[in-house]
Design a protein around this nucleic acid. Structure first.
Length: 722
DNA sequence: TCAGCTCACACTTTTGAATAGC
DNA sequence: AGCTATTCAAAAGTGTGAGCTG
């Protein structure tokens, strides 16, 4: 059984301090969602980084050198929303995202397997409020919630598979229910988030963790709400989402129709009352009459109803074929029957836990619409039709110079940078982190034909229109002031360490590692060849499945995405999300600083080239983010129906609060060099508690031993995968 | 009083089973 | 018997607005 875990704090020394603060607050305050110990996971995190498997002569070697590219297919739609200030409804039961994430991957090795993950991380440490026609930061963010990852149902699948279709994460759901047991991604309302997509390479059937690529599309940032705040967003949603078609002008649930219904209701009630009241003293007679069949009270009421509204005229009523569903789901090919077979063959995947650490995107918070326009001329055009009214302008409420702007008072980031050190090295604390293991199973991928790899789709990568946004670098400074003069990100590099073998049991961190920024080499955990001997997974080669007892684990500790803040910001200045630069939490952010993490030589991923300069961005509707490294994906056919189980729950990612830390006195803010929010290294590791591989993929993951007073959310064991 | 959240509602799309036809 | 196309109902996804809560 595979287990997925996210240990956001593990690799982040200082950053976790911020997290600890939040959790500390929670523990002592209103929300004690997390274990009482802080950062224990990070502290206790064993040096699991092991020597990567030999790469030489591997078919993937070349691919690794290639730049994995990911395109956001519905970029124009996202930009339309982004230009207004994307809002995402979150509910207790879970709400899908709209627009959804529809992606194309390219430059993947067709024969290699990849896992696609979606996670959503806070953009900053602020809570927002919609006022004055725009979003303004009004205070500190709520304590972090359990980090969860949505695993694409197709995962793991071959590069050919991913490249052959559009990849959609529309099944992912967002919830504000901190006790959610459905595996939905838990978010706070009125907070700003950034979705991230991770492509994790399974080098071959025997080894995982060959590479990891993360992508962030700045235009997909959104603010969570329980009810839409901005009417423009509502209009956009209604106009673009087919499920909301009924609310359109010509829809049966439009304001007009609803008013009409309301009137009818009222009239019915009124008439009914009139009838009843016509002879209050003789109801018996009335009833008697009704029983005779001529005058039924109900019939009277019905008869009083105005004629039913005429059926919608085909020309204006709903017609599926002319739905203006910009984000309409791409026709998905029928589910590959092979998946069922594969699923049956892959029942033995086990022992893998995944830890994801989020990287924080640091970006300018300038909400200047003009900036957006400048950077997205195409989007501007596309969205023009949606601008029924001028978007919340930066004028008054968004004026950075406005000292009254609540943002100015916004404290600097509470999330220390993560890049600094790997979890294993970050602390020598004697506290042993209780790594919560979440077990999960991957949906069975369609059988891949490695013998005849499909040609890589070149459309996305070669398309001149593709925007050259790079994959997420380790960290993007969310609050980096937008500076046009800022040189294009020359450093969008990310390093990934993928020891394919990880000790089952955490080992004490040997040493404290200084921030990677300064000591990139430190980022590379000590790769132990001894550990590396074992492969992460035992597969049944011909089935390309996981099989047999797996005692090795995939460890993807440093999934750090670091992008040049300048390029990032320039490319995607928040349009509606107001954030005065003055309030930018990371004044000290240095885009020029090394954004590349040192990684084991064999696994060192060269950082991809800097993102294209904003001015040079193509007007294509697609945004292409070059992967940090190699590999990429193409089209994908959303195959297996989504199940909530696809969402990985990794409470373990939540570092336990350190009891020793005073709850009333949060730790001092991390050094300025840290990004606004924590990065969450993505880790795949074996689930020590999982001894048997025979377990079918009934459960996506399982939480172990983390009973929490408040939370059943830790227990994901009851969720079937399929 | 008010901001934010929950819920029921009506409408729509999606999904899958049942059925018919070849 | 097997396959495909069509039909239909249930499930699920929407925004709305009233009501509740702190």
């Amino acid at each position: 059984m595979l287990s997925v875990e996210m240990f956001p704090s593990l690799t982040l020394g200082p950053q976790r301090i911020g997290d600890c603060f939040y959790r500390e607050r929670e523990a002592s305050g209103h929300m004690s969602l997390f274990p009482p110990t802080c950062d224990t996971a990070a502290k206790a995190l064993p040096p699991r980084l092991l020597a990567p498997p030999p790469v030489l002569n591997e078919p993937t070697a070349k691919a690794q050198k290639d730049e994995v590219k990911m395109e956001l297919e519905n970029t124009s739609l996202w930009k339309q929303f982004s230009s207004v200030g994307t809002e995402m409804i979150i509910t207790k039961k879970g709400r899908r995202m709209f627009p959804g994430l529809r992606l194309k991957l390219s430059s993947l090795n067709p024969s290699l397997r990849y896992i696609l993950l979606l996670d959503i991380v806070p953009v900053d440490n602020s809570r927002y409020r919609f006022q004055g026609g725009g979003w303004q930061a009004v205070g500190k963010a709520e304590a972090r919630l359990p980090d969860r990852v949505f695993i694409h149902p197709d995962s793991p699948a071959t590069g050919a598979h991913w490249q052959s279709r559009t990849i959609s994460f529309h099944h992912a759901k967002l919830t504000n229910n901190t006790l959610d047991s459905q595996g939905h991604i838990i978010l706070h309302s009125l907070h700003r988030y950034q979705p991230r997509i991770h492509v994790i390479e399974a080098r071959d059937v025997l080894r995982w963790g060959g590479g990891q690529h993360s992508f962030v599309f700045p235009e997909t940032q959104f603010i969570t709400v329980t009810a839409y705040q901005n009417n423009k967003i509502t209009e956009l949603k209604i106009s673009a989402n087919p499920f909301a078609k009924g609310f359109r002008e010509d829809g049966m649930n439009s304001k007009k129709q609803r008013d009409a219904r309301q009137k009818r209701k009222m009239s019915v009630l009124t008439e009914t009352l009139d009838i009843v009241n016509c002879d209050p003293c003789d109801t018996t007679e009335l009833l008697s009459q009704s029983t005779e069949g001529s005058v039924d009270l109900q019939a009277l009421a019905l008869s009083s109803l105005p004629p039913l509204p005429p059926l919608p005229d085909p020309s204006c009523g709903y017609r599926a074929e002319d739905a203006s569903y910009a984000d309409a789901l791409v026709p998905e090919p029928p589910l590959d029957l092979g998946q069922a077979f594969m699923a049956s063959q892959m029942s033995d995947i086990s022992g893998i836990s995944m830890e994801t650490a989020g990287s924080v995107i640091e970006r300018s918070d300038s909400m200047d619409e003009r900036a957006y326009t400048a950077n997205f001329p195409a989007a501007q055009v596309d969205s023009s039709s949606f601008r029924l009214a001028p978007p919340p302008q930066s004028s008054s409420s968004f004026n950075p110079t406005d000292t009254s702007d609540p943002q100015t008072s916004i404290p600097t980031l509470d999330y220390p940078s993560v890049l600094s050190s790997s979890p294993t090295l970050s602390s020598s604390s004697s506290v042993t982190p209780s790594l919560q293991q979440t077990t999960f199973t991957f949906p069975t991928p369609p059988p891949s034909n490695s013998s005849s790899p499909q040609p890589l789709l070149s459309s996305s990568s070669s398309s001149p229109s593709a925007n050259a946004y790079h994959t997420l670098p380790d960290m993007i400074a969310p609050h980096t002031p937008t500076d046009a003069s800022f040189p294009p990100a020359s450093v969008s590099c990310a390093a990934f360490i993928y020891p394919n073998l990880l000790p089952v049991n955490p080992e004490p961190a040997p040493t404290v590692t200084p921030p990677l920024h300064h000591q990139p080499q430190a980022a590379a955990p000590p790769l132990s060849s001894a550990h590396g001997a074992a492969t992460s997974f035992a597969f049944t080669p011909h089935m390309q499945n996981f099989a047999g007892p797996v005692h090795s684990s995939l460890h993807l500790p440093n999934l750090s995405l670091q992008a040049s803040a300048s390029s990032f910001n320039a490319a995607f200045p928040p349009s509606s999300f107001t954030h005065s630069s003055a309030s930018l939490p990371h004044p000290s952010f240095q885009p020029s600083s090394s954004s590349c993490l040192a990684v084991p030589s064999s696994f060192q991923q060269s950082i991809t080239s800097a993102p294209a300069h904003p001015q040079n961005l193509p007007t294509s509707s697609n945004s292409t983010y070059a992967s940090v490294e190699r590999g990429s994906v193409p089209h994908f056919n959303p195959p297996a129906p989504y199940r909530p189980e696809m969402v990985l729950h990794h409470p373990s990612l939540l570092p336990q609060l350190d009891p020793s830390l005073p709850s009333s006195t949060p730790p001092p803010p991390p050094p300025s060099l840290y990004p606004a929010f924590p990065s969450y290294p993505l880790r795949l590791c074996q689930d020590p508690g999982h001894s048997s591989l025979s377990m079918p993929f009934r459960h996506l993951y399982r939480q172990h031993g983390h009973a929490h007073p408040q939370g059943s959310y830790l227990d994901m064991s009851t969720r079937p995968v399929f």
